[in-house]
Design a protein around this nucleic acid. Sequence first.
RNA 1: GGGCUUGUAGCUCAGUUGGUUAGAGCGUUCGGUUCACAUCCGAAAGGUCACUGGUUCGAGUCCAGUCAGGCCCACCA
Length: 708
Amino acid sequence: MEKSFNFVELEPEIYRLWEKVGAFTPKIDPKKKPYVITMPPPNAYDQLHIGHALFVAVEDIMVRYHRLKGEPTLWLPGADHAGLGSQVFFEKLLQKERGISRFELGREKFVDELHKHMTATREVMENQLRKLGASCDWTRKKFTLDPDVSKAVYYTFKKMYDEGLIYRGERIVNWCSKCATGLSDLEVDHREVEGTLTYVKYPFVDGSGFMVVATTRPETMFGDTAVAVNPSDKRYKDLIGKTLKLPLTEREIPVIADEVVDKDFGTGAVKVTPAHDPTDFEIAGRHNLPQILVIDERGKMAEIVGSPYAGMKAAEAREKVLADLEKLGLVEKQVKHIHSVGHCEKCGTMLEPFVSRQWFVKIEPLAKPAIEAVKTGKIKFIPERFEKIYFNWMNNIRDWNISRQVWWGHRVPVYYLVSDKEKFVVAESAEEAKISLGGPVEQDPDTLDTWFSSALWPFTTLGWPESTPDFKYFYPTTVMETAYDIIFFWVARMIMMGLYCTGKVPFSMVFFNGLVRDSQGQKISKSKGNIVDPLVMVEKYGADALRMGLIVGTAAGNDTNVSEDKIRAYRNFANKIWNAARFVTLKQPKGVAIDKVELNERDKEVLKEFGGVVGTLTKLMEDYQFGQAGELIYEYFWHTFCDKIIEEYKNQLDDNARSKAAGAVLHHILKNSLILLHPFVPFATEAVWQELYDGEVITANWPTSRPN
RNA sequence: GGGCUUGUAGCUCAGUUGGUUAGAGCGUUCGGUUCACAUCCGAAAGGUCACUGGUUCGAGUCCAGUCAGGCCCACCA
């Protein structure tokens, strides 16, 4: 054996060995209960970052442990098309490399080229997973846009539409004018913004004075269709029903009463702009008020507003409107006002509430059983506190906007009759739609929110809705392991859709990992320059070291810090394993089994202690306390086995009377320790195993706590 | 506005049903080894476990409050 563990050369070689012997592909055995994890699919264009490395480490520990216990273990890898994110990414690339926009390329070509591009980037991403040691079953890998997965998506859409759980509606949605698409509520990033609250005078048509409304967005006044006050507000009681002249326009609007108006905010009178404010949209619904769109999908003032405002950007128009109102003496006062404004999660643009025609999932019927499943313990969360967060959101859940005005993704399976666009049908294919509508059809241009297909991931990856052998055997899956920041985006929706589509919970446990931060606990970001690139770490210290560095000293659901020092320390540990093995075998290449030698009292004591470690470690593994488990086996192997036991037995290996027994004891602990360490330090343990023992450690048997 | 959560060694963090001398990585000090170990070994310094009160035979661990952070959710114009 070499003097040290050469991870640069050995790790890839060992990974190939595992693939060659088919260690990642489980054998379907009806008599055994499988252990199944669906990998959270990284974006197909992703360069893996340190957060990916963490989930790989945690999930790989889980699957390696259960594989060692002899359970048919499936870890199913995948890649996500990441709709809007990928589209934005590829648009930038097009602009940079060819200087063209997606519109110049055209939809069909754009989609086609992005598909090709992703096939290539996806391979890079998958190879990065290999470098991290992910022991997932590549024979079953899936992509969200695979034909069978897409088919399942369309099937689900149709089923939900037919059962009244998906509907089309003219609703106010969060609109990003830069991305030119509507978003779901979850994709809105609320930020505190210092704005100005302007008090504007609206004159009564009968000349009896003014009503003063407070607004942060005067430019939307062209879309006002009423002014609302609280019905119990004594100040305005007699004014309800009167008519106001909307300044800068020729329109007249009524004063109405609605409960949602807060008497204590501003003047207690609010301008109602149904097309551009969610609350106002609801007020309008209750009072049958018209909606007037005054800002278009690109964030500019609409034609209907007229000169000189039409065509201006909303911010520009605001200045102009204020100036014009000022001239008319209609601005009472302006005060600074801090309020929370929605921004696009992807591009940071301030969002515009915007009425448009979108597809929605009626969520309440889905949420109820999903709440129940967690309440009754059919699904357990680790750590438990996320159950509260889950209930809190699920109990206040609102309908889900699933359509996106984006090109990249699953196209909404809705077809319109070309001769009459009001006639449409939901169908799994254009052919079907054509027959059903009796004429040429055109598919809806929208695509589905990426999270819609993600919500189906635990079962579409196994062949659902077909009743495949994989689906029958591996579903429901065992653990969903993911970062806590996508509990609503993903976990909650998988539970809802899993129950709806399959009638079963999609997994029986959710394990939340934290976010990875730098050595000072700072959020990792490019702009901060504190990126820790997992692949650079792998090259410098090995995947084993990186994994240990990410796992030890962390707890489920808590954020975890990485530092190069810590990773380096575990590089030394991987090397320590290598050298302990090297030393033992230097003296005795193969140990005899401990039941073939005469053990003295000290031997028995040492073995008993080891048995205790096996017991404690097993308990920690069963309880999903991997940080603790890693620390325990690290501590035992280095500071007990190496520092104490090997030191103590060193001389005995040359002593004829004791050499056999001493060698047997050392080999017994070494060999079994390699198994215990394997989930954490897969490469070094396998490298050593290959030098010393038969077969592969990846498929060895987890030891029991009794030494014999 | 509502909810969740953290405050443990110089730094970053573990410590899951309350139980003996509170742990790790990095850092610091001293000594040794360098024919298993890109080192390693031995030893040491360093903590009123935020604060106050309570429950208990016993609390870092449970409860209440205080102070100081972090995060998430939310249609107050």
